[in-house]
């Protein structure tokens, strides 16, 4: 099997890329819908009762991490590469 050609077919074809994106969004929507019907064995935290909470938390956490990390980095932590020289 030529792995390179196989990968190229999937990464370079714009039509396939569009198709993948559509499937990806559909799966995300489906996950939230399914969450309404999944049986909870134990309800420990308040948010365990909210369907789709994990989706929201995952997304908000991601955005926060990107924004906050980069903000701290640019304001303070990130230095040019010859900083210690």
């Amino acid at each position: 099997m030529n792995l390179k050609r196989f990968l190229e077919r999937y990464f370079e074809d714009p039509d396939l890329q569009k198709k993948f994106k559509r499937i990806f969004y559909a799966v995300l929507a489906l996950l939230v819908v399914v969450d309404f019907f999944v049986h909870r064995e134990h309800v420990t935290f308040l948010w365990d009762t909210i369907p789709g909470f994990m989706s929201l938390y995952g997304f908000v956490a991601t955005v926060l991490m990107i924004v906050v990390s980069k903000a701290i980095g640019h304001a303070w932590l990130m230095k040019s590469e010859d900083y210690y020289d």
Partner: peptide, 9 residues
């Protein structure tokens, strides 16, 4: 859900 919506971000 966590993984999917992180990827969305």
């Amino acid at each position: 859900q966590i993984l999917g919506f992180t990827a969305l971000g």
